[in-house]
Amino acid sequence: MDNVVLNNVGKRYGKLWALRNVNAAFASGEVIMVIGPNGSGKTTLIKCILGLVRATEGAIQVRGLDVNGDPKYRHAIGYMPQLSEFPRELTVEQLLNMMNDIRNAVPGSTDDRLIGALGVDGLLNKRVSTLSGGMRQKVSAVLAFRYKPSVLILDEPTAGLDPISAGTLLEAVMETKRNGATVMITSHIMEEVQQLGDRMAYLQDGNLRALLAPETVMDVTGEKLLSKALPKYLAKLPKNHVESL
């Protein structure tokens, strides 16, 4: 089943098209690495799927539900932003309880393994104002995974995390994928793209220029590193090439 379907999606800010003519379908049990240069539309694409931004044209569906309709579709979504900020005077435990209340989560229905795995259990009684940036990222990761999402969206998830925590997080990503979720990760780290991605969605100037497996890119170009293979592959693409469904 396709958990996320984008049909001719475009987003304009004033006269600038941040996204144009994006067509893609992301299946369950798939990790999509969303990559591209700065200003290519990665964040806009993510925000359109999350409902933070309304697409100017086209349609986006998450598990068959229109993202511009009832917000109930977001029960299926877990999101970890690049920068995490929370109400400063709440404790971590109160923050987790708040999200439980908002999601009407039944006790025992949440996946709390990351709380222990990332060391957040030691932070539960601490106020958010006392947490470092890395600690807040860990709390953000816990919130993203906690409700067993069918669509998990992570915006540069390992930025700000120590190497061990980053490894733990990436293991959690793979397990979530094995459980049938669609995982979308924005990243500038080619090693992560090569290691994690089933497919990578390469955006450039708001267009989806390529949507394919990293291995395919490396096979076609004969390169063993994605960081070298990708520029070669893109150079061979026709100038106006965009992916279609």
Binding site: L50, G51, L52, P71, K72, Y73, R74, H75, I77, Y79, P81, L83, S84, E85, F86, P87, R88, M99, I102, R103, L143
Partner: peptide, 16 residues
């Protein structure tokens, strides 16, 4: 303004 990033996180939750 101080709550902006958290408000964005709330906007991703299943609520109007």
């Amino acid at each position: 303004y101080n709550q902006y990033e958290f408000t964005v996180l709330l906007a991703v939750q299943p609520m109007h």
